[in-house]
Design a protein around this nucleic acid. Structure first.
Lengths: 156, 156
DNA sequence: ATTTTTGCAAACCTTTTGCATGGAA
DNA sequence: TTCCATGCAAAAGGTTTGCAAAAAT
């Protein structure tokens, strides 16, 4: 969970203007659970009757992700989803049923970096970035499916 | 590198019809180096003056990937790329400059599964799939950039 | 006063779909 | 002969862009 004001501060520090649409979008993001798409953000904004245009939502997400306030993940469906992220978490586990996401503490994937070094040595590729996405069923959904059928995922 | 005939055999075994467009697309894929997009495949097909439609390229890629002959990866740009893959390799290292890809032998990421188990225990998520993409510079491009400036990547 | 940001609408791009035709089994 | 597969063109997503008006510094 990121505080909206954190985003405002970062905007200012980054030399971006602190505007009302950005403030409102930041607010909406702070209220989001798990991952969300630009479209969901737009819908939320419309429910609140903010007069924010589609383009502004996309442009704000670009700015926020340039500031590492939000992480953009590429969904197989071709659309993009975003995760509000605390700085330091570089990976997430996403529930493939409800979309709720939790951060993975950096230390827990320590073995990964060792593995990458090995791959780098063997392939002779100079590996400088990686993308790891974990998918599974969150505790809530596991409990839910204990006595009822799996429902359709929120987001393909 | 997959042989086009391997694809034909798999098609047949999978109960799909062996058609001329599919044969030609398989041939083109066999000639591809590293990753490629549906559009690149379509262009190649046009250069050869095969009369293959856009839809058929997409539909063939769907079939091939259902048969695990090709792996679909989601690019940040929103388009999809494909990798011809030998069965057994489940990860790839992709050159972010030229797009050339090599498979990562399963065993080398053994530490990863241990790490996932740990994440699963801590988060209580039932992790059932993951996606790992490694990016770096391939040996050729490293050599090339030793005495000249980095060129623009083939594929964003 | 300047420069960034916004909203709107249209443009873009990749991928998908409907449907009549053509080809495989 | 019976389905499956193809091509075409149009539709459908999600995302981006041009531009004049509005807001921030």
């Amino acid at each position: 969970m990121v505080a909206a004001e954190t985003i405002m501060t970062a905007l200012d520090a980054g030399g971006y203007r602190v505007t009302s649409p950005r403030r409102r979008i930041a607010q909406l993001i702070a209220e989001m659970q798990g991952r969300f798409t630009a479209d969901q953000l737009l819908s939320a904004s419309r429910r609140h009757r903010y007069g924010i245009g589609r383009a502004t939502v996309f442009r704000s997400l670009d700015v926020f992700s340039a500031l590492d306030l939000v992480e953009r993940v590429d969904l197989p469906s071709g659309e993009h989803a975003y995760l509000a992220c605390e700085p330091a978490h570089h990976h997430h586990v996403v529930c493939s049923r409800c979309g709720q996401a939790v951060g993975v503490p950096e230390g827990e994937l320590g073995e990964l970096t060792a593995a990458l070094r090995e791959v780098s040595r063997r392939t002779r590729y100079q590996i400088d970035s990686h993308r790891l996405e974990l998918y599974g069923i969150c505790p809530d959904c596991q409990a839910a499916s204990a006595d009822q059928n799996p429902t359709t995922a929120t987001l393909s």
